[in-house]
C-alpha cells in the first residue's frame, strides 16, 4: 500500500480500491495464524473488504473511469509468524485502509462523502476491536486514518 494520492472523487476511489486489494490479500496470512473467534472475525473482515472492492469496481466502471488492477502479491510490513503478529497486522491493515477512505472524504460531497465517512468509521472501529483482541493499549488513536 502506498500513501493516498487522490485527485478528485474518481482518483480517491481508485486509490481506495488499491488499498482494498492489499487488505484482502493481507487477511490471507492473518487468518491462518488465528483460531476460534479471532479467525471468524478475520474471515468477516476479509469479506467486508471484498464487498467494498466489488462495490468500488462497479462504481468506477459505471463512472467511465479507469479501474486499477489487483497485483499478484503484496509485501507485508513485517513477517506474520504467530497470533500476536497476525493481530498486529490486522490492526495495521484496518488503519492503513482507513487512511484512503479518510482521503476520499474531502474529495467527495453529498452521499459519496457520507459513504466514505461510514467506511472510515467502520475500519477505525475494526482496528479498535483488533487491538482489544490483541491486548494492545490504548484501544484508540486520536485521529483515525490521519497519516502519521
Amino acid at each position: 500500500m502506498s500513501t493516498p494520492t487522490p485527485s478528485g472523487p474518481a482518483g480517491a476511489l481508485a486509490a481506495a480500491l488499491t488499498a482494498e486489494y492489499a487488505a484482502i490479500w493481507a487477511y490471507g496470512p492473518i487468518g491462518v495464524r488465528l483460531t476460534g473467534a479471532a479467525r471468524t472475525a478475520a474471515r468477516e473482515a476479509e469479506a467486508a473488504h471484498r464487498r467494498r472492492r466489488d462495490d468500488l469496481v462497479v462504481r468506477l466502471s459505471a463512472g467511465g473511469g479507469s479501474v486499477p488492477p489487483d497485483r499478484a502479491g503484496y509485501t507485508l510490513p513485517f513477517p506474520v509468524t504467530d497470533r500476536a503478529s497476525a493481530l498486529r497486522l490486522a490492526v495495521e491493515v484496518e488503519e492503513r485502509t482507513a487512511a484512503f477512505w479518510r482521503a476520499a472524504v474531502p474529495a467527495t460531497t453529498g452521499a459519496d462523502r457520507d459513504r466514505a465517512l461510514a467506511v472510515l468509521v467502520e475500519y477505525a472501529l475494526r482496528a479498535t476491536r483488533w487491538r482489544r483482541t490483541a491486548g494492545i493499549t490504548p484501544l484508540t488513536v486520536p485521529f483515525p486514518g490521519r497519516p502519521a
Binding site: 465517512l117 468509521v121 477505525a124 479498535t128 490504548p138 484501544l139 484508540t140 483515525p144
Partner: peptide, 13 residues
C-alpha cells in the same frame, strides 16, 4: 472525519 471516527471508537472502547 477523523473526529467522527475517533468518537465512534471511544464508544466502542
Amino acid at each position: 472525519a477523523s473526529i467522527v471516527a475517533a468518537r465512534a471508537t471511544h464508544v466502542e472502547a
